[in-house]
Each structure stands twice: as structure tokens, then as C-alpha cells.
Design a binder for these strands. Sequence first.
DNA 1: CGCGATATTGATATAGATCAACTAATGTGG
DNA 2: CCACATTAGTTGATCTATATCAATATCGCG
Lengths: 241, 241
Amino acid sequence: MLTENFLKGRRRRELSAEERQALESVLTPPVTLPKRRVVTVRGDVVSRSTFLISGFMCRYMDGADGQRQLVSVETPGDFVDLHGYPLQRLDHDIATISECQVAYAPHEKLTELIERFPHLGRLLWFSTLLDAAMHREWIFRLGRLDAVGRVAHMLCETYVRLDAVGLVENQSFAWPLTQQDLGEACGLTSVHVNRTLRVLREAGMVDVADRIVTVLDFGRLASTGEFKPDYLYFNDELRTP
Amino acid sequence: MLTENFLKGRRRRELSAEERQALESVLTPPVTLPKRRVVTVRGDVVSRSTFLISGFMCRYMDGADGQRQLVSVETPGDFVDLHGYPLQRLDHDIATISECQVAYAPHEKLTELIERFPHLGRLLWFSTLLDAAMHREWIFRLGRLDAVGRVAHMLCETYVRLDAVGLVENQSFAWPLTQQDLGEACGLTSVHVNRTLRVLREAGMVDVADRIVTVLDFGRLASTGEFKPDYLYFNDELRTP
DNA sequence: CGCGATATTGATATAGATCAACTAATGTGG
DNA sequence: CCACATTAGTTGATCTATATCAATATCGCG
């Protein structure tokens, strides 16, 4: 089941067997993309959307001086650029971070699908609004938290999202982002990210090393990052690890 | 026509007469809300969405220390909290800034509407993704621009959006946000917003006084704020004032 | 007409950027 | 499989944009 992680754990949003079957039927066979590959650039007209089966991708915008600002990190089970279906044209770039497995949903098939299954249409809509909710929290992070808070918040979000799709084991998860990437997500330089991670490590909250994140004290990490997971719309049991 | 400004000027997104008629028919009669009134708070379960006819509203999140971070400013023609329809529960607060006229769309009626007019459903979906696109640009603003750039970018966005619904006259528009509000949007203190506005005024780009914004040199303001209006998905003619 | 909210200006403090040097991984072609 | 190149991470010194604190001015409203 390619889409088994789609909306997994979202409160009252599980797909029916029939809906899932129908969704699977519009996807192309899976494809592997190499790491650090730009997939779509701002302005591209898109006629299909990318479902992420495994690996990490990101969406970002480029500044005038060539600096990147990540606007989201996509993890397995995410419909990366479903936004492109109603928008038709993308307002940001998309790239892989690690090697990824993806499958494509052609837009004309999505239209048929939604007309046949309006409820599934609402679920797809919902999934794009999860992105919007994460964007809002991202704005909060940049606007109101200091460096330690921003990184803590980001790591909490990732932890909870990956936990929902079974990618957390022993408080740890694989994390292909470099410190540079994390800085581009949090509006910080890689140098400062490095110092910030040291602070969090020395405080015993989290350890990031060798592309693996180990959360040692989720409670303290969450309160440092003012992380309240309601915006991820998970089932209650999942909401506070 | 209450909804005459809904999606106005968006490329190939105008509603058909029949669709507009149907949309109007689900709205309650207009209501007036006083300024600075909190309308919804984070966590509220919502069963209707608010269409903004006139006035300014905002969406925001509260930090632990009581600081607000605005995540969007809503202007006439916006479906303020249509996100609440697929999400059911809101992850942020909503308040008026100025006195506002609004009409409500009960969610059960929206469901009927969308099943009858799937294309209108896609337009409603599209309108929520415009918010997401603005959120992304907002992230870019906070993560990559300095104070002058952030304020410039925000003023450009507002100018273009208000222009599309006929609220710009002689390069000027009414602007009910205080410097404090603008700071809460841009992640700056009101003191620094004040100094930033002075810089922009002295550079001859824009003048903000008496709750009126006058854009004197849009081109320079846009380049200062790295403002590229494609993310607002307007018709081409509207894209560069 | 007076009082709270908003705007303005100045002085000082600080978080994070920038610049620079070095180390440790990771990868690649011979 | 090694030698070298490239990328990622680490640490220190200095600089700067913006916060913070403080005082005054002005506006808008009851």
C-alpha cells in the first residue's frame, strides 16, 4: 500500500478502504529520486502531484542574495505538492533532501476521483490545509521564538510527525538535514545552528549527531519551543508523546 | 452582491453566474462586528465560516510571554476562516482590526453546495491555498528579510490585494493597523517599526500616516521587499502595478 | 477637555551574523 | 583501496541590527 501513511493518525480522517483503493488507483508506479535533486521550480505549471513514499523533501523560496528559505519539510506519507492541483502553478521550489521514493497523481485523474468520492475530495483538501497550519506555526516560530526555541520547535514537530508514521524508534529518528538546512528552515546561519544544538544537547534535551536525532526530554524540548501539537490534528493519543 | 470581491482578479478563477448565485444563497445576512473584537480562539470547533465583506481582520497566535504573532491579515473579499471547514477546529485566533461587515456560511450548506458544484468546490479549495501561499511568503519575509524589507514586502502585498478589490485610490489605501500590529505581523517591536517606516518615508517609497498608506514608488518598494506578486495568482494585468 | 492609546525619539544592551580558521567526515577517481 | 577533494561540523573573535528601556509628544475618544 503506497499510501498507507497518508493522513495516518489524523483525527477522524482515516480513508475508507474504498477511498484508499481509489486513491491508489490513480497513482503511477513508484519512482526513485536521487538526493538533493530540484524537482520543480517556482512558476512551473504542474499537471500531476507528488506523493512521498519514503525519504525527505523540502519546499523553499530563494532570496535575492541567493539565500534559501525553507517553507516546509515533507516526510513520508505527505502529498508534497498537492497544492499544485488547485493552484496549477507553483509559487515555490521543491527538492529532495535524501533519496526519495515517490508516486505521481495526474491531475485529470484527481478531478474524476473527487467527483466520484466527494468525501475523499474533502480529505485531500484537508491534507493541504495541514500544510497551511504548519506554515502558520512556522511563522510563529520565526516571528516570536529565539534560536533555541526555533530549533526546539522544529525538532518537536518532526518528532511527532515521524512518530505518527512509525519512523521513530527509541526516541530517535533518521534526519537527513544538514545544519545548513536547519538554518535555512529556522532563519539562522549554520554557525548559529551549531551553537544552538550544543545548548540543547548540553541541557540534555536532544542530541543531533550523525544524521540521527535523539530526543532525550520531549517535555522540556516542547516547552522550550512552545510546541503545542494541536495544529497537527492528530488523534488525541498521539498528541503528547 | 456580498461576494462580488471573492477571488476577484484571480486568473481563470472567476465564478460563473450560477456558482456565484449558489454561493450567495448559503450565506447568512450580513452582520457588523466592532473593531478589536476576538471572534474565534485556538481550539474552537467551528460549524460555519466567515466571509469578510468590508473591514480588516487578522489571524494570530499567542506566545508564552503574551506576545502576538499575526499570521495573516484579511481584507474584503476574503473567506476568513474557510480553513475551519475541512479542519473543523482552528489552530489560531481570529479577531477584527477595524469594524467589519461579515456574512456566515454554515458548513453543512457548504457540503451540499460542493456536491452540487464540484468546480465551485475547487475554487473554494483554491481560495484556502491562496492563504497557504501567502503564509509561505510570510515565512520568507520573516526568515530572510531585514526590518525594512519585511515592512516593504508587507505593504506591497497589501497594496496589490486591495487594488484588486478596488480599495486603492491615488496610490493610497486605508490601513487600520497600528505600528504595534505591523510589528506583530513582521516580528518587530513597534519602536523599530516606527524607525523603519521613517526610513521608507525618507527614501520616498511610501508614507504611512493617519491610518492611510500612500505608495510613492511601488517599483522601489517592491525591490526593497523582494516582492514578486506571482504568489497571489492574479491575472497578468494586475500583477505589476 | 482630559486620559489612555499611539507615535516618536534617544541611549544602551544583546542575540545572532559575519569572518576566519581548523577538524572531521564523506566521497571519488586513479 | 588509497590519496586527495569536497562537504559538513566546530570553535573563537568581532560586528551589527534590532530589542529594550525611558521619556516625551500627539492623537482620538468619551
